[in-house]
């Protein structure tokens, strides 16, 4: 009886495996096709774009579509704006998160738990509620169309502070005691003990924040009215609108400019990012 069961297993097993791979491949194709479609459209000629049924690969690859797309709008400037706002935003947010996380993990204070609850409460408040008030504040500060206007309202940190606090708490307290005996103050303990040990989670946080700041659309859209202050996603959206009329091949080429940095970061660090997301969300 038992032997027969074992003998029959391979065939059934292979059938099962094939079925699983078929499903996964179908999903991968459905997810991947839009990316491929974007790329092949970006290298077609206008005539090839307007063909039905569409061809998958153009007769001659039109790399100059990228040059034309780049010149339809000040994409160089958009790039600089995106880099400046994303990088400075990540830097500030991580610094703010680390300071709060250290305070909540290691500094004794009577009302610490109360402050912690206040911070967590902020996580429940949807950012969309703040659009008008924040715009009014920025207008008062004369920060519309400035880098600080794009960056500062979004560098307070709840998720990052929470994540780092968990990590700081998991460091053996003997290490902190040693730092204290050596006469290190809180700031130095944070820099020389807590942060170096948190390097893996810090790296994931930096990448995650960079990508989300790079991709953000609604807030930069609201606080930039002048073309030279637009970030890449806002600039890309504007290119499509009525002020320009560009063909799908140029629109897809421009979309690729916007995506490339994010996709590069993602494919280099995908394992770390995926596992970080899974761990962070489950704990959070």
């Amino acid at each position: 009886m038992r032997r027969a069961a074992i003998k029959h297993r391979p065939l059934k097993w292979y059938a099962g495996r094939t079925f699983i791979h078929a499903i996964l491949m179908l999903a991968t194709i459905i997810i991947g096709l839009p990316f491929l479609w974007m790329l092949t459209t970006a290298i077609k000629s206008p005539a090839e774009v307007a063909m039905f049924p569409p061809i998958w690969w153009p007769e001659t690859v039109r790399w100059d579509n990228f040059v034309k797309a780049w010149n339809t709008a000040p994409f160089g400037r958009f790039y600089i704006n995106s880099i400046v706002t994303s990088v400075s935003g990540v830097f500030l947010e991580v610094a703010i998160a680390a300071l709060s996380a250290y305070a909540f993990a290691r500094i004794r204070f009577k009302y610490r738990d109360f402050f912690f609850l206040v911070m967590l409460a902020a996580m429940m408040i949807p950012g969309q509620i703040a659009l008008i008030p924040n715009y009014v504040i920025l207008a008062k500060l004369k920060w519309i169309n400035t880098y600080q206007g794009i960056v500062i309202p979004h560098v307070s940190s709840v998720f990052g502070a929470f994540l780092l606090r968990q990590y700081f708490l998991s460091v053996p307290s003997s290490l902190y005691d040693a730092a204290e005996i050596d006469g290190l103050g809180h700031l130095k303990t944070m820099f020389y003990v807590a942060l170096p040990l948190a390097r893996p989670v810090l790296g994931t946080l930096v990448l995650y924040l960079f990508i989300s700041k790079w991709n953000s659309y609604l807030w930069p859209l609201i606080v930039t009215t002048k073309q030279h202050m637009r970030t890449l996603p806002v600039g890309l959206a504007m290119v499509r609108s009525a002020e320009y009329s560009i063909g799908p091949e140029h629109l897809m080429a421009a979309s690729i400019f916007v995506l490339v940095p994010v996709l590069v970061v993602y494919f280099i660090a995908q394992k770390q990012l995926i596992e970080g997301i899974a761990a962070g969300a489950v704990k959070g």
Partner: peptide, 21 residues
């Protein structure tokens, strides 16, 4: 990695390509 990739893809670019699809 491939199935997860849209999570981090710029939504404006996603909307552009789907608009074309």
């Amino acid at each position: 990695a491939i199935i997860f990739s849209p999570t981090f893809t710029t939504s404006v670019a996603v909307a552009m390509v789907w608009g074309w699809i």
